[in-house]
Design a binder for these strands. Structure first.
Length: 623
DNA sequence: CAGAAACGGGG
DNA sequence: GTGTACGTTTCTG
């Protein structure tokens, strides 16, 4: 048996002899050259949870189905402990096939965790984090039916057991950015007739060039004899260098689809995957995601839309915002004229192509570290993280935490629940319209991460929210002491002994135990403080920069978490929690303003977690 | 005015 | 592939 260490970059599964095989893609640690590994794990099986009406009767019904295993497990559902049935299935695709049948059994109350992709389940259950180092135990093999057409320099390893995560620093990743230019005499190009005229490439491993069928005289241009050879050269460069990350700008929906269409027309195989597979597209709603197996394709357009708030997200606009300088630009609809010119205008087009791909690379260099940190914290592949809304990132982070806490994850809202939720919206933060005029000597006051602090200090979480219907004794299995059943007769002081009571709404949150979401946010903020302290103590500028990205990622995660209670698609959605948080927020800011006014401040403008004031003690004394 | 459709980025 | 964006603006009946 061999032991190897690798940086985990990508994951999927294939089917071999009707059984799922997890494939882990990575780069070997401790070898000078880029030794790629594909590790195969046949030991993992898909499962879902079933909530039965009657345990035994339900199991009997389940026995009738073609399942791998049926067992009773003890798990928590919003902190309350229950017996669930864990149903192990033979194949991940049996889950969508059988889940309606299972759900509709008369003894089944509901099914849970039935929509967690197999590879994500694997990462969570084995506590593996992409971009971290993992230890592999197993045998290397020459060929495997699970890996078609991989080049011989890729090591294939059959694992004896699932790998485990190793504490590790951040790996050095090879990044390649690419960008195509297309002949466009009729507006937006049409792949059936308009050829690709340039492919720009820029990376952190010595590649910086423009492939084209023209431009022999330019130093950075590589001239090919035909479009066909140019595309083939692009494929060969990717296969030769095997970058860990390949980035483009709107490459999911323009560059890669266009290359695919032209390659098909010209009969070129785009077999750039580490396993020898071709460029693939995954439908994501109405758009595509382009996949090269084993390399991580990041479309920076999607990333930048989330990262900053702008009126437009053109490459030019984003570049200007990030670097404060204009990149060389040409009017898009006239590019074909520059191409036809053959003189100075052609040189300008080459310049434009190179500048585009360099700008794309620079943006990647600036923005990928944060996304890689989020990958390591959330624990899902960079490919997924880079395409996920921040609310989704938080959700997958919480799903991982739920597994650690022994909690069964809430279901996604049904269509009906979703539209119901969308109708209601929690009242936002307190806003005092600004007093017009020029104010001098202004003091500013604001709370540091107000909402996350409220969630923690008031224990705002659906699992500790007191369900009034159950307190009134209408629901079975109440875990609250008997003397709480008669709340109406209790006086306020005894209430506030046990509960945090939200202003305005009066929702009650248990003080003990700590709720699931407050606990997780607490961990995030504690970890952030630790990193900030470490950052202050560090004297190494590189280390400082890395730590700064880490604490920034944690901050973004914590700040997103407060809002998720109000996101209609969120699994832990709770209008009560969302309303309570903002109510406490309004309460705090108003009380603080009142106090400040007592000391002679005069507030001019307030919004959510802060206010501006002038100091006018003489005016206040008269009141 | 409400619900449907279009739009973004890319050349 | 344990899948099928999304939030906002503009159009249309």
């Amino acid at each position: 048996m061999k032991t190897k260490k690798m940086v985990l970059l990508d994951i999927d599964y294939v089917t071999h002899q009707d059984k799922p095989v997890i494939r882990l893609f990575g780069k070997e640690v401790g070898s000078d050259k880029d030794n790629h590994i594909i590790a195969l794990d046949k030991t993992f099986q898909p499962y879902i949870y079933v909530v039965p009406y009657n345990m035994d009767a339900c199991k009997e019904q389940l026995e009738e189905l073609d399942l791998e295993k049926i067992e009773t497990v003890h798990k928590k559902d919003l902190a309350k402990e229950f017996d669930f049935i864990k149903v192990t299935l033979k194949h991940p695709q049996d889950v969508p096939k059988l889940r309606d049948t299972i759900r509709n059994l008369s003894e089944v109350q509901e099914i849970r965790e039935h929509d967690i992709p197999f590879y994500r389940r694997y990462l969570i259950d084995n506590a593996l984090f992409p971009t971290s180092e993992i230890e592999l135990k197993g045998e290397t093999v020459e060929f495997s039916p699970c890996v078609y057409g991989a080049s011989p320099e890729v090591t294939i390893m059959e694992l004896d057991e699932s790998p485990h995560n190793l504490e590790s620093g951040f790996p050095h990743l090879k990044i390649l950015s690419f960008d195509i230019e297309v002949y466009n005499p009729d507006g937006m190009p049409n792949a059936e007739k308009d050829e690709i005229i340039m492919i720009g490439l820029s990376g952190n491993f010595g590649v910086e060039k423009v492939l084209s069928t023209k431009g022999d005289h330019l130093e950075y241009a590589e001239k090919l004899d035909s479009e066909q050879e140019m595309i083939q050269r692009f494929v060969d460069i990717v296969k030769e260098h095997k970058p860990d990350v390949i980035v483009g700008y709107n490459s999911d929906n323009f560059d890669f689809p266009y290359i695919r269409d032209r390659a098909k027309l010209l009969g070129i195989k785009l077999d750039m995957g580490v396993d020898g597979s071709e460029l693939r597209f995954m439908r994501r709603g109405f758009t595509n995601a382009a996949i090269i197996k084993g390399l991580i394709h990041v479309d920076l357009y999607l990333v930048m839309r989330r990262y900053m708030r702008l009126d437009r997200y053109t490459l030019e606009r984003v570049y200007l915002e990030l670097f404060g300088e204009e990149k060389f630009d040409l009017p898009g609809d006239t590019l074909w004229q520059y191409w036809d010119d053959d003189g100075e205008a052609l040189d300008q087009l080459f310049h434009y192509s190179l500048d585009d791909v360099k700008a794309t690379y620079q943006i990647a260099e600036k923005i990928l570290p944060l996304n890689m940190e989020l990958t390591r914290i959330v624990g899902q592949p960079l490919f997924d993280i880079s395409r996920m809304a921040t609310g989704q990132q938080v959700e997958w982070f919480l799903i991982r935490k739920a597994y650690q806490y022994g909690e069964v994850v809430p279901n996604k809202p049904s269509h009906n629940q979703f539209s119901q939720r969308r109708g209601k919206r929690a009242v936002g933060g307190y806003v005092k319209e600004p007093e017009t005029g020029l104010h001098e000597d202004i003091v500013q006051f604001d709370f540091r991460s107000l909402y996350p602090s409220i969630i923690i200090s008031k224990n705002v979480s659906p699992d500790v929210l007191v369900d009034e219907s159950s307190v009134n004794g209408q629901e079975y299995g109440s875990e609250f002491p008997v003397d709480d059943l008669n709340l109406e007769t209790n006086v306020d002081e005894s209430l506030s002994d046990k509960y945090h009571i939200a202003p305005e709404y009066g929702y009650k949150f248990l003080k003990e135990p700590q709720g699931f979401v407050p606990s997780v946010i607490g961990q995030v903020l504690t970890e952030r403080s630790r990193i900030k302290k470490q950052m202050k103590e560090s004297t190494d500028p590189t280390e400082k920069r890395i730590l700064d990205v880490q604490q920034e990622a944690l901050k973004r995660l914590a700040n997103t978490m407060y809002g998720v209670y109000g996101y209609s698609r969120f699994r832990w959605y709770s209008l009560e929690c969302a309303e309570s948080i903002t109510a406490w927020g309004r309460d705090y800011i108003k009380k603080t303003m009142k106090k400040a006014e007592k000391f002679g401040f005069h507030s001019i403008y307030a919004d959510t977690d802060g206010f501006y004031a002038t100091y006018k003690p003489e005016l206040k004394k008269e009141d």
